[in-house]
């Protein structure tokens, strides 16, 4: 009985969680890191827009095609973020490229 209950709970949790992976669209955010906390960054685009983006364990962070630690996302570095979400208010980063400084407009 207990095993059965655990299976039901696990399947329900997986189904509820898996829903987040669907019905999302891809977005690219290009700009400068303005803040970096454990699981999110704030990026300022060239037009001044601030975008908050979540990170997770699957987020791939690279510099010159080499994987680097999240600690490299220091304030002031230029990045290109490929993310997905329902809108720019709800983004999860898939890939983050640290790039040479991008000229501001």
């Amino acid at each position: 009985m207990q095993n059965m209950m655990m299976r039901v709970v696990a399947v329900s949790a997986l189904a509820l969680g898996a829903g987040h992976a669907f019905a999302h669209e891809d977005f690219r955010v290009i700009g400068i890191v303005m803040s970096h906390q454990d699981s999110s960054i704030e990026v300022q685009s060239r037009d001044g827009t601030m975008t908050s983006i979540r990170l997770d364990r699957q987020t791939l962070i690279t510099r010159d095609t080499k994987t680097v630690a999240a600690a490299q996302l220091e304030i002031g570095v230029s990045i290109v973020v490929d993310a997905y979400g329902d809108s720019t208010d709800d983004l999860l980063a898939l890939d983050i490229r640290i790039v040479p400084p991008i000229a501001t407009q």
Binding site: V9, A15, G19
Partner: peptide, 22 residues
Amino acid sequence: ATIFSVVVAAILLLTVVLPAEY
């Protein structure tokens, strides 16, 4: 309490998540 939670989750799964997502 556990059974109640599982039942609620199962109802949501059948009535909301599965139709909306899949």
